[in-house]
Amino acid sequence: MITIKELEHLAVLSRIELAEEDKKSLIKEFDSILAYVDQLKKVKVSTAAEDRVGAVKNVSRRDLAEPISKEDRDRLMAEAPEMVGEFVAVKKIIEQD
């Protein structure tokens, strides 16, 4: 049902490198899971799709920078794999002409 090309595309979208030897078995597993969930297509849907559970509503916080203590900040920053000075270091993504 799902082709190797589709699987590779999903992997690109998901930012995961797949090992060549895993692709075949992943496709097999995908197909068996999709065949199972495809049974949902038979259901006569009577209510409108509603994407929230129970009485819980979406809550947004105010769009404000909250102050954070130096200790908290240091603990969070300590988890970054690479730092330059006070900043998290990442690779350059914009090329200069």
């Binding site: 970054a80 794999p81 993504i93």
Partner: peptide, 22 residues
């Protein structure tokens, strides 16, 4: 692989994602 947790280095930023997550 950038803000916390494992980081595996690739040749550019996007390859870091692929390698780290793999």
């Amino acid at each position: 692989g950038m803000r916390f947790g494992l980081h595996v280095d690739g040749k550019d930023g996007i390859e870091d994602y692929f390698k780290t997550r793999k």
